[in-house]
Design a protein around this nucleic acid. Structure first.
Lengths: 190, 190
DNA sequence: AATTTGATTAATGTTACAATAATCAAATGA
DNA sequence: TCATTTGATTATTGTAACATTAATCAAATT
């Protein structure tokens, strides 16, 4: 039942310009594949209600409100602060699993620098944990404490320093050798 | 002077995949005309961000005092009587000076590795401390959080990574730039 | 040994296209 | 008469295609 009498060219016919979801014309641009989702979310995000406010601690009695998205040039892409203030953190809870068997050791010197344990770092040692090959352990050899990576050489245990400049130590039967625990963490003050 | 003896099909010929300015494949997407410039700037700006989640100190942390030993003292412990050697320590107290102005940020990537800040470390940031040149700071650049070393060059602030593979960032007037605090410590779990 | 050259393939900005959606007015039907 | 349907028209929108540029390799040349 087609006829030629409906429609037809006439001014004002057809979809109105600006009736798309952006209310304006569009262009195609090329962007990295990994950021397609991010950009699509961003350009579709309601502009009006964009009032993300993050509260961060401040020494003054009343906490300061820091407004994000007040950029001068590129306006408001998703910021890490958007949804990233998640939870609170208790350092004791985070770093100490078993407080009954945990203690700290303050490190002197740079012999563990390749395991990124530095002079004056404090390491967290759990003496209840069974040391496995590859673990960073606190051991004593002939009455001296040392922090090393546990390896195994035939049947005798072997301690690898994390710093290449130091020689591995093969534990002989005659040596007093004791593993005091496994290093489970490290903390540092700047 | 054309001949058919150069080039020719052979494995490995031609431009390498991923050699473009994004280091990955691209796609075309349609965006509002008014935001083309903004998005092009955004996807091309230096990726300074090296932080992940932001956390606040726990309001009611566990109080755990554990023994602190010195790496260099001769083994013979535990010797609870010896107060000279043995101290005790609470990690929250040790690392957090001002709870009201402190928060935590998780590090992503290895841009600060020479400052011994590693992937997945958590750094402690004090917002009340005045940042000085040379300090490790948390800053935001155009909405992106980053941990960097604060420097100054010709009166413009500069953010230096602690890894020669990364480029310093010169802060221009046109950039949104804010210093959020000074990094006062770092913790790591093994 | 260093440089040039031509073939090859990826990157990149733009245009083209097809499918969908919105809009209008004539045609239809109550 | 007035609401609904219908067909033509035009914008939107995601994707494919294209042309130009850039990077890379190995043979040819200096």
């Amino acid at each position: 039942m087609k006829d030629n009498k409906r429609g037809g060219f006439r001014v004002g016919a057809g979809r109105k310009s600006g009736s798309g979801c952006f209310g304006e014309s569009t262009k195609v641009i090329r962007v990295p594949t990994s950021r397609v989702t991010e950009i699509n979310q961003y350009i579709r995000r309601p502009q009006a209600g964009n009032t993300d406010i993050v509260m961060l601690p401040h020494p003054t009695p009343q906490k300061i409100q820091l407004k994000l998205f007040d950029h001068k040039v590129p306006a408001g892409f998703p910021s890490p602060a958007d949804d990233h203030i998640e939870k609170s953190l208790d350092l004791n809870e985070y770093l100490i699993t078993k407080k009954e068997s945990t203690f700290f050791v303050k490190i002197k010197g740079d012999s563990m620098i390749d395991a990124s344990i530095h002079d004056n770092d404090i390491v967290i040692v759990d003496r209840s944990k069974q040391a496995k090959v590859g673990d960073i352990i606190l051991a004593s050899i002939d009455g001296e404490f040392t922090i090393k990576i546990l390896a195994k050489h035939l049947s005798l245990p072997r301690l690898l320093p994390a710093n290449e400049k130091y020689q591995p130590i093969v534990i002989q039967e005659s040596m007093q050798f004791e593993i005091w625990g496994v290093v489970t963490g490290a903390v540092r003050k700047f």
